[in-house]
């Protein structure tokens, strides 16, 4: 009950501090593991190079992929600030479901890379690496 209250109160007494600071920004990278051999790290759902005005306007009404990506950003930030199995499970599940079904890999592993600026340089720092989990059961589950 206390946990529910702690989730509810910030919605009715919001802080409204949008973009107070531009904090280090998380990216999720994953790799697939097949027969004990781990593949290369890849970025989960990389952005398109360009987006036309038509697609941008369509996204005003229909934007489920991007909103899920923003949710994964929240899960990544929560995982660093207040680690929980919920965040790990949500990231594993949603990364697995974005992958093509029937991949030869048996396991999935992700890591969180945080980007920030030091002077004029953009630096990347790996702040979390998950334990590998079996891929097939995740791909068979509904979100």
């Amino acid at each position: 009950m206390l946990r529910l209250l702690s989730l509810f109160l910030p919605t009715v007494i919001p802080s409204w501090r949008f973009f107070k600071t531009v904090a280090p920004s998380p990216r999720i990278e994953y790799r697939l593991i097949a027969q004990g051999s781990a593949g290369a790290w890849r970025e989960d759902r990389p952005r398109p190079a360009h987006l036309g005005m038509g697609r941008i306007l369509r996204r005003m009404l229909w934007n489920p992929d991007w909103n899920e990506q923003l949710y994964l950003v929240s899960c990544s930030e929560r995982l660093i600030e207040a680690p929980s199995q919920h965040s790990v499970d949500e990231i594993n599940l949603r990364v697995a479901q974005a992958l093509p079904v029937g991949a030869a890999a048996q396991a999935l592993q992700f890591r969180l890379v945080f980007l920030s600026r030091e002077g004029e340089e953009i630096v990347k720092l790996v702040e979390y690496e998950s334990k590998p989990v079996p891929l097939a059961p995740l791909q068979g589950r509904r979100v």
Binding site: K20, V22, R47, A49, L51, R59, W66, L115
Partner: peptide
Amino acid sequence: NPEWQRGEALRDVFRFSAYPVSEGL
């Protein structure tokens, strides 16, 4: 926030934050 006063913060939003919807932006 001095970073917003100098215009650096909005540059950072476009430079490395997770929000821009395309790399072109």
